[in-house]
Design a protein around this nucleic acid. Sequence first.
DNA 1: CTGAAAGCGCTTACAG
DNA 2: CTGAAAGCGCTTACAG
Lengths: 339, 339
Amino acid sequence: MIPRQTVNMTDVAQRCGVSIASVSRALRGEPGVSPATRDRIMSAARELAYVVSPEASRLSGGSTGRVGVVVPRIDAWFYATVLAGVADEFDAVGVDLVLCTLPDSSARHRFFEALPLRRKVDAVIIVSVPLSARERTRLDQLGVPTVQVGGHHPPGRRPWIGIDDELAASQAVGHLLRIGHRDIAMIQAVDHEGTAWAADEARIRGFHDQMTAAGVAEPTVVRVPWGIDGGAHGMETLLSRSRLPSAVFCHSDEIALGALRTLRKAGVGVPQQISVIGVDDHPSAELSELTTVAQPVREQGRLAAVSVLGALQDDGGVMPARTTLPTRLVIRNSTAPPH
Amino acid sequence: MIPRQTVNMTDVAQRCGVSIASVSRALRGEPGVSPATRDRIMSAARELAYVVSPEASRLSGGSTGRVGVVVPRIDAWFYATVLAGVADEFDAVGVDLVLCTLPDSSARHRFFEALPLRRKVDAVIIVSVPLSARERTRLDQLGVPTVQVGGHHPPGRRPWIGIDDELAASQAVGHLLRIGHRDIAMIQAVDHEGTAWAADEARIRGFHDQMTAAGVAEPTVVRVPWGIDGGAHGMETLLSRSRLPSAVFCHSDEIALGALRTLRKAGVGVPQQISVIGVDDHPSAELSELTTVAQPVREQGRLAAVSVLGALQDDGGVMPARTTLPTRLVIRNSTAPPH
DNA sequence: CTGAAAGCGCTTACAG
DNA sequence: CTGAAAGCGCTTACAG
C-alpha cells in the first residue's frame, strides 16, 4: 500500500487515543468534549499540522471553509482594493477566498447559468456586478448567504454595502457650484456592452439634480468608454467645441486623469482655464493634484467580509441589511473659482 | 434562501435502470459503456439537470480542481495584474483560484509553518515571495506542483517565470548613459522589514554594473521605503544635497512617480534640469510621461497558470523550467540629454 | 463526555 | 459491457 501523504482525522484520533467523533467535535469547537480531551486533541492536531479536508467536511454536511468573491476584474484599483479588504478579514479567521472574475456580459451569463460556485463555498460576496431578476434568483439558488458590495440595491434582504454614488456626485458638483461655476460639463463613462451599472447611473443622476437645482437646464454631457483613454477622448471632444466649459465633472478619477492628460498636451491651464473634478480618490489623484470625492474602498471589502462571516455564524449574525459608507470631498489643485 | 436542489447520481441511475458506476463512467466519457446505455444516461442526466457534486467527486477522485495563488498583496498594480493573467487561464479551464496574501514577514512565517493550503489545492503559484531554504522545503511538503513568478531562482526544478531585473536596470541606466548622462543617482527601494527581495537586489546590481562599466566608481545612492511617498522622500534627500545629479534611476515607477511629485513641487524642470527613469511601465507612468522599462506583467501570470495547469496533466506537462520574459525601454518625456 | 456507525455522493478496482 | 462493493474523510444522530 502506498503511504498516505496527508494526515487525516484518524491520525489525530489515534495519536490521542480517542475517536474521530471527538476530534471532529473538538476541532470545530462543538460542546460535548471535556476540556482535557479537547486540549490533547488540539495540540495533537497542531503537532501533526492537521488540516481538515474541506471536501469530506462538506460532503458530510459541514461547511467548506471557503467563501467566493465575485468581481468584474482584478486588475483595476477599485476591485483589487475591495479584495484586499476582504482578504484582511478572511485571513484573520482562516477562511479561504475563492476568486471569480466576470469581465464581460458573456462571462456573467455563463457564471449565472452554470453556477460554478455551487457546493464549493459557504457564502458569496458579489462586487459591483449588475444583477437582473433572473440572476438574483440564480444567486439565491446557490443556497448560501450572499452579500453585495455596490451595485443596485437588492430588493430582498440581501445585505448591501457601498456608498451613495448620487451623493458623491452631488458633493463634487456642489463644490464646483459653490466656488462659482455654472458652465459645468460632465464626462460620463459608459459600458461598451450597454450594461447599466448602478454607480454610473447614480453619478449621472447626482450631476443632473445638482445642475437643475442650480438652474442649469441642459448641461453639456459627453459619453465615453471607461478608463483613462476614454477620459482623454472625452476632453478632446469638449476642446473641439466652440466654447470651453469653466469646469468638468468627471465620472471617476480615471476619466479625470485622462482629461488632465489631454488638457496638459493641449496647453490648457488647470485650474486657471478649466477646473476638473473626479470621484474615487484613486492613488493617482493625489499625484496629479486632482480634486475628488473620496470613497472608503478597502473598508467596503472589510465590511462585506464581516457581514458574510457573521451570516455564517449559528445566530445568523446581526449585520444591518444596508450599510452606506460616507464619501468625502478632497480639495486639491485642479479646481478653483472661474476666471 | 431557496434550498439547493438535490438530484444525485443515484437518481439518474434509477431513471435509466443502470448502476451509478455506469452513470459515472458515461458522464465522464470513460470507456466501458455501450453507446446505447451511454445515450440513455446522457439524456436522463440532461432531463434531470444533474450536476456532479464536486465534493464527492474529488473525495473519491483525488484532485480538488483548485489552485492556490500566493501573493504579497493584492492592492498593488503588479500583483493584481499578475493575478488577472492567472485568472484568465483558470477561467478558461474551470479551475478555481484560491487566493492567499502574505503582506508581511509574520504572515509569511505563519503561512509556511501552518501550510493552510494543504489538502485544499492541486497546485500552487507563488508570486515574488522570497523563499528561504526551509520555506522551499515546506512548500515541497505541500506535495503538489509549485510554480514561481519572480523572486529568486529556485535551486531545484521548480518552474520559474519572470523577467531579468538586472537586465531591466541595465536597459534603464544604459539609456541615460547613451544620451550623455554620467552623474546618475539611484533611488533604491528597501523593505522596511529588511527582507531581501530578488527584484530589488537585481536592479541594484544592474545599476552598479552599468555605472562601473561607464567608469563611475561610486554613484550616489539613496535608500527609501517602497512606494510613492518613499520616492518623494528620496528625491527630497537628493535635492537637499549640494549638487543635483543630472539624472536619477528609480527602482520602480512608483518611486519615480513620487520623485516627479517632489520635483514638480520644488519647481525643478523635468527633463530640463534632471532626467528621471523608472522600471515597470505602471499605468500611471504614461500619464506622467515617465520614461521606463516595461515588463509584461499579465503575461507572467498567464504563463504561470499555463505551466501549473500543464504540470497537472497526466503527462506532467512540458513547460520549460525557467522562462524569462523580455523587458523593453519605453522612452517618454522625463529623460533628455544633460543640459 | 465519548464512541460506533450510518451516511454524504462520488470513483475505481474487482468480478461477472 | 455492467454492477456490487469498498472506500475517500468527514459530520451527526444515536447509544452508552
